[in-house]
Computed example of a mutant assay.
Amino acid sequence: MSLSTSITEELLFSYFNGRATLLQKQWVEKWKEDPANEEIFYATLHKWENEHLQYQVDVNKAIEKFNVGLSANRPSAGRSSVGQKEKDADSSKWKPWLIAASLLIILGVNSYLFRDTIFYKAYSTSFGKTGLINLADGSKVVLNANSSLKIPRFGFFNNARKVYLKGEACFSVVHTPDNSRFVVQTDSMFNIEVLGTEFSVFTRPRQTKIMLLKGKIKVHYSPEKKQASVLTLSPGDLLTYSKKQEKPHIMKVGNPESSVAWMQNRFVFNDTSLSEILNIINENYGLTVELRGKDLIDKTLSGSFKAKSGDEFLESISQVLDLNMIRQNDHVILFNN
């Protein structure tokens, strides 16, 4: 049996937590010497670290100990004896140190809890709004509505430019003289690595989509209970994945620019189901749409239109599909004429 087929994610997890046998350790160390396996090794390591945090803070317990320490040093009511006064005098010498130590503990806990705020700067967009972010390396990111991007507050380090995305964004990444990697990390099982290129990423709970416009990208795919892998995309490739799929699907798209038409407030549909359009309305504008009519869910839409707001989007949909609309705050009802 070859090493490439025997090294599984389960075995790598055992290697990381120190439970692998001596023979298994030798297998893994021999296997990871091959440059072709390096990406899989580190992608699996990243997944294992996320699932096995090395430090868990019990804030309630820390505060309780702090309060108990303070209570123990409070003077008792009434008159005290000479011996008690001596004890109080001795203990008073330690009070400043105890308080200082307690404060340091609390500061340490707070630093851990708020480390993201300390080390990262977050950008976000509200419903119906997009935003342009100029990164320190010259790269540009356009955030779609209801999305957020987290970047290192003190710049990129360790020969890697890593950002964290929730929602949808279009990236225009510059190539640096030192060939520094640019990594987009998502909450899903996909991370994107590039040197310099243009691409869009859609990462929401229902689906992940990665569209490559220019250049070349590597997509690190780390599914649960399966071996991690690296997928390579070429210009025009669209990667899609949802929980209903067994694995990611890659297809060639004839007009890849349509995937980022939202940057000009334009929406392009190609035989798109009404249920998919309702997801877009909910994710981009925060509106919940109710369909009244058995055949409505089977309707599809092809074409494009511009919309700068949720109202304009709904108006266009209603006209094209010949539907009536009733809006009650953030709840919309669509029904046949």
Score class of each variant (00 low, 15 high):
117 T>C: 02
208 T>V: 14
24 Q>P: 08
136 A>K: 15
304 S>L: 01
157 F>A: 14
329 N>W: 02
145 A>K: 04
192 I>Y: 11
73 N>Y: 01
174 V>P: 00
24 Q>F: 01
160 A>W: 03
126 S>W: 06
129 K>D: 10
68 V>N: 11
151 I>A: 08
271 D>A: 12
316 S>Y: 01
205 P>F: 06
13 F>L: 07
225 K>Q: 13
140 K>D: 02
294 K>F: 07
58 D>Q: 05
98 L>N: 04
118 I>W: 10
175 H>Q: 14
214 K>R: 12
303 G>W: 15
180 S>T: 15
68 V>M: 08
120 Y>I: 04
312 E>R: 02
20 A>N: 02
303 G>A: 09
292 R>K: 12
195 L>H: 10
321 L>S: 02
316 S>F: 06
305 F>P: 00
256 P>F: 01
203 T>Q: 13
169 A>W: 01
300 T>V: 10
254 G>E: 08
158 N>K: 13
135 L>M: 11
204 R>F: 07
277 I>F: 01
265 N>G: 07
271 D>I: 06
291 L>M: 08
162 K>F: 00
155 G>S: 09
260 V>W: 09
46 H>D: 10
148 S>F: 11
24 Q>N: 10
123 Y>S: 08
114 F>M: 14
117 T>I: 13
140 K>A: 04
328 Q>S: 08
284 N>A: 15
148 S>L: 10
112 Y>H: 08
235 P>H: 06
327 R>A: 03
136 A>D: 13
317 I>Q: 03
15 Y>V: 02
213 L>C: 00
193 E>K: 12
102 S>E: 07
130 T>N: 11
154 F>S: 05
73 N>H: 05
8 T>W: 11
63 I>N: 08
101 A>I: 10
33 E>R: 10
326 I>Q: 11
181 R>N: 06
160 A>R: 14
26 Q>T: 03
95 K>H: 01
159 N>Y: 11
261 A>W: 02
137 D>G: 12
174 V>I: 10
64 E>T: 15
106 I>H: 04
86 E>V: 05
3 L>F: 06
309 S>M: 05
115 R>M: 13
298 D>C: 00
24 Q>S: 07
56 Q>D: 11
127 F>V: 03
260 V>N: 03
